[in-house]
Amino acid sequence: MFQNNREGLALALPAAVFTALLFLLPVGILLSEAFRVDGQWSLQGYVDFAVKPLNQTVFLRTLKLGFLVASVSAVIGYASAFCIVNMDAKSRGRVFGLVVLPLMISPVARTYAWIVILGRTGIVNDAIVGLGLSDTPIRILFTETAVFLGLLQLFLPLMIISLVSAMENLPKDVIPAARVLGANWFQVFTKVILPLTKDGLVMGGTLVFTGSLTAYIPPAILGGSKVLMLETLLYQRVNVANDFVSAGIIATILIVMSFGANLLLKRIAAARK
């Protein structure tokens, strides 16, 4: 640590001022607009927003998909992470690399693939018709299922990474120790692995949950106007109706939920220390 803190402030300030002025200030003004109706401070905008059935549906759907994606990725994440940490070093590195890789690839590209897979003439429908399960192709694209799959594919790596690093930090030999003491695999998981990897689970869960809430591409490409989520609803309100009040409200909801999740994460992480 150096003593001249004014020097330090001078080094840190440009970045902070840049972000505050050109990023936080405009965003702050936008959010505050949702609390103004006809030039007066008011919550009327929120009331009007909340009573519309479409808005309710979209809000609940967004929450539901967020939870669903987080839960399913937790299940897949635990299974995969457990397998990954038990591999030999060489294949572990390779598999881990393959898990991380998609994060570096354009989400548009990642999501677009599902059109080919789930479309009317996609692989899944070809299989369904080919196997005689249905006479005509069924609609999967533009359903919640499609959006769910898109989100899951986008964010699953974050969960796996969090859980792998949590499991790598497990004290050596606790699992064999629990087995020797007579625990079955279910007990090993619930009584040893789960409590010891809770931080990783919370971390991954927060990343996946907030990621899903605020993702634009999967609902836009795979949901369209039939399966709106908050982000796509926001886009539509602005583009179709020039409705900046709704945009501000949705923005506030999104920020509050992301912030809430992050705060929860910090709280839980701090409580463990």
């Binding site: 990023f23 405009p26 992301s258």
Partner: peptide, 22 residues
């Protein structure tokens, strides 16, 4: 916190805010 904030603020809002106020 200020410097880290852009990670938490959903990008769509940033774009909209910059469009409207800058």
């Amino acid at each position: 916190t200020v410097v880290a904030a852009p990670i938490i603020v959903p990008g769509i809002i940033v774009g909209l805010a910059l469009l409207r106020y800058l």
